[in-house]
Amino acid sequence: MEKLPKKLQSKIDQRKAENALRALTFKGELVDFSSNDYLGFARSEDISKRASYLIKEVTPINGATGSRLLTGNHKLYGQLEDFLTEHYGSESALVFNSGYDANIGFFSSVPQRGDVVLYDELAHASIRDGIQMGHAKSFKFSHNDIDHLKERILSLRAQSSNESEIYVVTESVFSMDGDSPNLESMAMLCREQNCFLVVDEAHATGIFGQGRDMVSQLGLQKEVFARLITFGKAIGCHGAAVLGSPSLKEYLINFSRSFIYTTALSPHSLATVLAAHQYLKEQGEPVIQTLQENIGFFKSEATRLQLSEKFIQSNSAIHCALVIGNSNVKYMAQQLQSHGFDVKPILSPTVKEGEERLRFCLHAFNSKEEISRVLSLLKNLM
């Protein structure tokens, strides 16, 4: 038998020709400027000990044993969802196995045939995939452009029936740029035009709003139809949740296929998420403050070294320096890695051709010396 069908092999060959072939690598002992572990919770012994205690106290079993609708809805699910509801100021929470599962489950089932989804042109692949799996029409609006979004809404309102719903989708922190939309203006527009606002908080969860998210920081909980929070980034664990009304939760339990037809998370996964949130609530403030200080220091050092023009404007933990061309950005990343810094290149087609970049993820555990050194090396390479 052929090693691989010819059409598939041709795609692999094309990626190689474009110097864009992806491959799995093992994490080395480099200084971390690439992981999503913004607060360092993934390496916390305190959280690990708390999780072990919770498992022993609540449900000392290893596996989920089935989907949540069959046998997998163990006690830790209820405890975690109750905690999330209170912590994030939501009416209810429904835990999914990952942010990807949550987005495809939500967008494939909630917008109905005849409805319209308006999504930011830089929205995450999981949002796009979920929309494509559903039956609603969809259109992009220019990145963080409220005026263009308004034009789209008014045009749709003029030509659609009163029964058509409009869902507006954005991210509070964009994963490949690190920037944020004007959520207050977007919420006001959605309220005026009777649209349903959906916000993916993946890269804001645990960092903004005193360990909550951007919507909480801005006090917009009642203005947002649904929020996606994830546990695999600043929370340092795995999984995600959709925050919204009890009616939305009931609907997703009944119609979201990525929720219904999958084995539930293990007790250990849920215990770790709950333990991390408990730690965040009790002791997270100084860690978040340290992260914010590192973000400010990174930006000031970039200015001092006259690198600011190379970076996309960001107030988050994600900072991206544009380096055009897959070969160029891969070379610069390899140079930084050879000097002990784990900085990843972001290649096309992950981003548009001509917008390739070095992506710096900042953490509470990064030292100011490490930040200065990596930026000085970048200056020399530039």
Rank of each mutant, 00 (worst) to 15 (best):
S52T: 14
Y53W: 13
L54H: 08
I55E: 12
T59W: 09
I61P: 08
I61G: 02
N62H: 11
G63W: 11
T65E: 08
G66C: 09
R68S: 03
L69R: 08
L70C: 10
H74Y: 05
H74P: 05
H74C: 04
L76N: 03
Y77H: 01
E81I: 02
D82Q: 15
F83V: 06
L84F: 03
T85E: 03
T85V: 05
E86W: 07
Y88W: 05
G89A: 04
S90V: 05
E91S: 11
S92P: 00
A93Y: 03
A93H: 01
G99T: 04
D101K: 01
I104S: 00
G105S: 04
F106D: 01
F106M: 10
S108I: 09
S109R: 02
V110G: 00
V110N: 01
V110T: 05
G114Y: 09
D115N: 09
V116M: 09
L118M: 06
Y119N: 06
L122K: 08
L122A: 05
H124S: 12
H124N: 09
H124G: 05
S126G: 10
G130F: 08
G134C: 04
G134M: 00
A136K: 09
S138K: 04
F139D: 11
F139K: 10
F139G: 00
F141Q: 05
I146A: 08
D147L: 14
D147R: 13
D147F: 12
H148K: 05
L149H: 01
L149Q: 05
E151I: 10
R152H: 14
L154W: 06
S155Y: 09
L156A: 11
A158G: 03
S161L: 12
E163D: 14
S164A: 15
S164K: 10
I166G: 00
Y167E: 03
V169Q: 05
V169E: 03
T170N: 04
T170K: 02
S172P: 13
S172G: 02
V173W: 04
F174M: 09
M176A: 09
M176Q: 13
D179G: 12
S180W: 04
P181Y: 08
E184Q: 14
S185N: 14
M186F: 07
M186T: 06
A187S: 14
M188F: 06
M188I: 11
